[in-house]
Amino acid sequence: MSAALRFALQALFWGGWAGAYFALPEYLPLLAQIAIIALFVLSLDLLVGYAGFVTLGHAAFFGLGAYAAGILAQQGWGEPISGLLFGAAVAALVGLLTAPLVLRGGDLTGLMVTLGIAMMLFEAANRMAWLTGGADGLQGVEMWEIFGVWRFDLFGRTAFVYSLTVLFLLYLLARLIVSSPFGLALRGIKGNRRRMEALGTPVRARLVAVYTLSAAYAGIAGALLAQTTQFVSLDVLDFHRSADALLMLVLGGMGSLYGAMLGAIVFMVAHHALSELTPQFWQFWIGIALIALAIAGRGGMLGLAGRLLARWGGR
């Protein structure tokens, strides 16, 4: 793909978001949620797509960020930016502390430990109703104006612009990180861990770093959801959230930041469009999609588009 085409497609992607703001005013709350989930899938991509570490419990960090930011605001500190940072810090801290546990055994053990930790957190949030509201959800989250200027309005305008801005900034940071020597080292670890060790890379330290980074990203996504909806329910920690995010990532294409975001958009739009139907129906087709993607291989939509473009360009 030529540089000009690449730039044009990226401009189209971000321009599309901006256009949606004007074209679809009644859908702004949904669009804000899509941007948030796109950020969550982006965080998963850093870990799974780039470093090759598969987790079944990424919702743990999304939920931690959501509860951290939500509880902070509920307790009387409603300033949004510091709330985001607080959500990121809590998630990153738990990520840093659990990374050695998760990375201790082989990848099968890692799968189960990530799952177990997420389940523990879900149960903990469920049982600690005095702090989290339990199954009723966290009520009474009151947000202040962003920078003391922009109030969260009923139409979701502020929520959308705020979420999209955070997504864009964190996308830029992620792009920098994946193109840095650190990012290349992550791809090396995914490609061949033994060789990376023989090149003198402290593989474990790199994985701890990316696990923590990914946790912080997921924490910010969760915090955004808590702030823009002013509510936190238990499903932020649900296993379904981890599984759905993996699906979105694979759907869009792993190891590419745009793939992660596109997967989230397609999934969320389809979910919204099909939500009129029964929930079982949705779950059934998600399951079919997962099976098909697993069997057919994981290039995702971006991989497919790339192949089409290559064929088209080759003519």
Partner: peptide, 14 residues
């Protein structure tokens, strides 16, 4: 393992 995870979660959902 990622393929197997996706596949088997999909099967559970279905």
């Amino acid at each position: 393992h990622l393929d197997q995870v996706l596949f088997s979660i999909g099967l559970v959902f279905v």
